[in-house]
Design a protein around this nucleic acid. Structure first.
Lengths: 236, 236
DNA sequence: AATCACCATTGATAATTATCAAGACTATAA
DNA sequence: TTATAGTCTTGATAATTATCAATGGTGATT
């Protein structure tokens, strides 16, 4: 499973917001201790409750963050290149709150927690970058929480479609980035309910054909969705 | 409205995790620029969407964080002494994602965002404390999000009662810390549904008398609630 | 004490969402 | 290609949750 490869051969990691202001010394110390591994699809990388041994960076592929409780399971988010996950657990030297599995064959950089915390202690610029990253993550979760508490399932779907449309150029033709099962779980609904929500949106110009969705009446869809930058904007 | 009082006369603020490792110089610069004000109950301190002008510290009283969208409103959290709120917005120099209002007459320390960011730039120890604080906030929201996505309303209530019981010494006699309207909103349900959820829990030894709840069969309640440290623990 | 406003509870009903079951479709591998 | 496993959709039904309306309680103020 281990693919021999030097993590230092990764300019895209060095270019990450999180790392770009780290001093060369701390960066190479971290990289020397790290592993760059390729995993097949559907590998469970971490389980919630485990101690945070590594900070993960998705270099290639896609990783699903999910949570389990009782018999249920829910998708908490997706991480695509180049993004990190479970930074907070690593910094607090705590257990993971979420589990993670690969969605596709993926190349991941694994930095031992201990080294991240050491670099955090020694490198002031790194500590500051972490603040910015954590603040962003925090605001993202708050937005998702608002989405869930303040909107119905149909509204969540409508807004998600509008977001995907914007992400993909705003042509009105949207490719769903994940399977419908996964999208349903992200939106906190069952697959059956997602199907029906798509039907509910038909009168608002939403035409579904497999993984392709055409939005033929954005105005009408927005009237229903009432998109809100304080929930939907990825940036701010 | 402004009560003349020097913010520097507040050892409890200096003792906050967030501030206790800040250098004296930065701390007093921040405090000199700050305001210590007392507000009556039900004052809306900030509105989501406003630029983050101040970092707030609750010195006395209680502040409710809530969010609005469409016609709806939802309680996102409560801040009690000595705690801060909207740190992330201040650091990112972004708009607030949540609104805040006083629940009671409250004494608040307001530190201008600009000064917080300056201290963050100049004082390394402060930057590190902020990381720890933000990581904790982040994990709290993740837990709340899991609570909402993985549990039914009755389960959320059962677990909340168990938490209150633990917070209050585990005697089985719980004083609800907020009005039922507010608790319902925190748990993402209507007041009517909360009433019914209490009734549903009656066979599990939950006896409600106004703001007092007696838990007479913790074992049975736990069997229903299935408390999970990865959702319910405030600490980790 | 009386008024008033607010909150909590209950009942009746509606809307939303989930579950179960079956069938259609899709992608992939033998 | 034919299996085959998985996903998606639809229908029927059940469970959960919300809404509306009415009532009783509580506390504050007058």
């Amino acid at each position: 499973m281990v693919i021999a490869m030097r993590p230092s051969d990764l300019p895209e990691v060095r270019a990450l917001d999180l790392f770009k202001s780290v001093g060369d010394e701390q960066f190479s110390t971290m990289m020397q201790a790290s592993y760059l591994q390729t995993f097949p699809a559907q590998v469970e990388l971490i389980s919630e409750g485990d101690p945070a041994d590594f900070l993960y960076i998705v270099v290639e592929g896609c990783v699903e963050l999910f949570a389990r409780a009782n018999g249920r399971e829910s998708t908490m988010g997706m991480v695509r290149p180049v993004g990190s996950f479970i930074l907070a657990a690593v910094l607090k030297d705590a257990v993971y709150l979420m589990s993670a599995r690969t969605c596709q064959r993926s190349r991941l950089l694994m930095i031992p927690s201990q080294n991240v915390r050491e670099a955090f202690e020694r490198d002031e610029a790194f500590a500051r970058s972490i603040v910015v990253e954590l603040a962003s993550c925090y605001r993202s979760v708050v937005k998702e929480h608002k989405d869930l508490k303040l909107r119905s399932a149909v509204e969540r779907l409508a807004n998600r479609l509008l977001r995907y449309n914007a992400d993909q150029g705003g042509s009105g033709r949207v490719e769903l980035p994940y399977g419908k099962r996964t999208i349903a779980s992200m939106l906190a609904m069952t697959p059956e309910n997602l199907s029906r929500a798509f039907n509910t949106l038909k009168p608002y110009g939403v035409e579904v054909d497999g993984a392709t969705v055409r939005l033929t009446d954005i105005t009408s869809l927005e009237t229903l969705a009432k998109p809100n930058p304080l929930i939907d904007d990825r940036k701010t």
